[in-house]
Design a binder for these strands. Structure first.
Lengths: 215, 215
DNA sequence: CAGCTCATGTGAGCGGCTCTTACATGATTC
DNA sequence: GAATCATGTAAGAGCCGCTCACATGAGCTG
């Protein structure tokens, strides 16, 4: 067996057949993207980390985009879970819970750079992984429903459209994450943390809509 | 001469020496990125479009990142110019001029996808092109100064920090551009145009700060 | 347990890419 | 007109994506 494993990673190899190559490749992809960016990931290197020949991955993924798409899909699922946890069904109160979602978004970008990159920077074609689009939709839906609950706290005649609120907040969170959390040539120093910047922005925005203290 | 040009592009080739290869390569890179995304651009293909051998580009750019970095640099210069034009020194009035900058940002992302991708999606190392970082700073400075002017319209005791305003608006514009203007697996349908979304967001935000009509 | 089948792995290889090195060409300078 | 040097080419090493024919052995079937 010329493609001996070098330990670490997923399951131990049990002979000619790997046993869990698909998972091992995904793990390898995540660690490679985290280390070298989405462009630094290659099928060949992932195969090497998994201890198999360079051709083996093609038994599990049509091409590199499909593997990247699977990483992105799992990223959306993780993000959805993180947002759901942060929102905590609106407890202790809708506005602070909403803010917690913002922090969770930034934390995700910071702590899971590989998933974040696969989701938003790798430009994986929508059809690369089945369910990718809908996984993205589900993550957004968490924010959307939180916005619904927030909007419901405003008298009907002044109630803002929840979808618009969700889009605004998602955009600002995503913009801050892209510009200031992830490394980038356009990145600049901030006089505050990204979390503080987002929290301030969301508060100012919500105030204007008759939420969040001010008005 | 085995690497004959196939027409189009920049300057006509005048013999053994190209005459303007550096510019021709940049043009080729822009058109390739626009057509196939930043990952679809290769030095070899750019050389082909310019009608030279695959090794020739290395006389003008250390590596692919350097060429991409030059595209990004020019992108920031173009963006700076577009923002400056839109702001028009605050005419006819600061708030509408500020909104015009937002539209200009989105228009830039839509109309110059190659530059936009090189600037924000290619993750070119900061040092790939000299002056890249400062070109980005100058583009942001336009927004920053506009925010200064806007903030100056608020009574001193309620005046918001202009830098924070600039960061919030840049983030929202960038988030909307990234999520809804540029194609992406996470992209979703909007019930309005990206421009309307941004305009509404900025207005709501400014209102809360005591600008823009409401208050 | 013998034998079959098929998912999963290997080896070999094509074409393309990046980047380097040695060499060729010709624009510029004196 | 000769020397110099920027700018081009040819050739090639090393890597990668992806494919094809073939090998292996896990799991079913009787």
């Amino acid at each position: 067996m010329s493609w001996s494993r070098q330990g670490g990673g997923g399951t131990e190899r049990r002979g000619y057949h790997h046993g869990n190559l698909r998972e091992a490749l995904i793990e390898a992809a995540v660690s490679l993207i985290a280390a070298k960016g989405p462009a630094g990931f290659t099928i060949a290197e992932a195969a090497r980390q998994a201890g198999v020949s360079p051709a083996a991955p093609y038994r599990h993924f049509r091409d590199a985009d499909a593997l990247l798409g699977e990483v992105a899909l799992r990223g959306f699922e993780r993000l959805e879970a993180a947002l759901t946890r942060a929102w905590a069904n609106g407890t202790p109160a809708p506005v602070p819970a909403f803010e917690a979602m913002g922090r969770a978004y930034l934390a995700f970008a910071r702590d899971e750079p590989a998933y974040y990159a696969a989701m938003f920077e790798a430009h994986v074609p929508r059809e690369a992984a089945p369910g990718l689009q809908s996984a993205g939709d589900r993550a957004f839906a968490v924010l959307r429903e939180a916005a619904d609950r927030l909007a419901a706290g405003v008298p009907r005649d002044r109630r803002p459209p929840a979808l618009m609120m969700a889009l605004h907040v998602w955009s600002m969170a995503h913009g801050i994450a892209s510009l200031f959390v992830r490394p980038d040539p356009s990145r600049r120093k901030l006089p505050m943390t990204a979390e503080e910047l987002l929290e301030a922005g969301v508060l100012i925005y919500l105030q204007s809509l008759g939420l969040a203290g001010g008005g």
